[in-house]
Design a protein around this nucleic acid. Structure first.
Lengths: 124, 124
DNA sequence: ATGATAATGAGAAAGCGTTCTTGATACTAT
DNA sequence: ATAGTATCAAGAACGCTTTCTCATTATCAT
């Protein structure tokens, strides 16, 4: 039996309103303003549950801990700000992906990651 | 003073002839057939040195330990075989990358990673 | 309201890739 | 050939994210 706790609600709310993929630490920081004393173990526990439920998907990027975002957003890619570390969603995709593949290789998917400096960090 | 040891030569040779990015474990396995008793620490030490010398570059991919390939190969991307775990080079690039970026964002680079099944694994 | 138990917080512990330590080895300038 | 020392192998130790343990708390069916 799954119970709805304040902690679980806070974690869902944070991810639901973020608009971008969040790391476990980002989820912790944001959810702690809703639930005092929230522990990182609870964040990991609930992230894991929510992924298993299919409500979240993990976003892996090189050399970083995974980010989590709402499932069902359709095909898109990500931008990683090298200044603040935040990850942003990018709508759309690129062309010519399949043309890169050598003969005999079977492609099941692809990831595109752009990196640079986000708008907030440029302004600062 | 930098010395040329059998271990160092073997590691360089393995990377020079691989034709694709290798993980530290792959380098270890391949170089051990040239130098018996080679240790993983020696592989890491030399990979680190060779990167600092600019002879190698690290290839980071999500959820994997880094791969290493010869520097100076020009702009290209990678294919990750989900069956054997090997990483392959893909010549060329994709179009429309910059069009994906929201206004105000500054792009300094991008990575494209294709994944699927490589030719050898399909044949098997 | 009550009881059964799912979920929590805090800290310990695990996992894993990577780096350090140490005494021994082997490379190179001389 | 020799001396000086960079490099080595092996295992211990690290750093970091993630998971586990367990006593305590909070949720929900009744």
């Amino acid at each position: 039996m799954i119970r709805n706790t304040r902690q679980r609600d806070a974690i869902r709310h944070v991810l639901d309103t973020a608009g971008r993929p969040l790391s476990p630490e980002e989820v912790l920081a944001a959810a702690q303003s809703h639930v005092e004393g929230l522990g990182i173990a609870t964040v990991y526990r609930n992230l894991k549950n929510l992924v298993e439920e299919g409500w979240l998907v993990a976003v892996d990027l090189p050399g970083q801990s995974a980010r989590y975002e709402l499932a069902g957003k359709g095909h898109h890619h990500h931008f990683h700000c090298q200044t603040c570390g935040q990850v942003f969603d990018l709508p759309g995709c690129v062309k010519g992906v399949d043309a890169m593949v050598p003969k005999g290789f079977q492609v099941t998917g692809h990831d595109v990651l752009l990196y640079g400096v986000c708008r907030s960090c440029r302004a600062a």
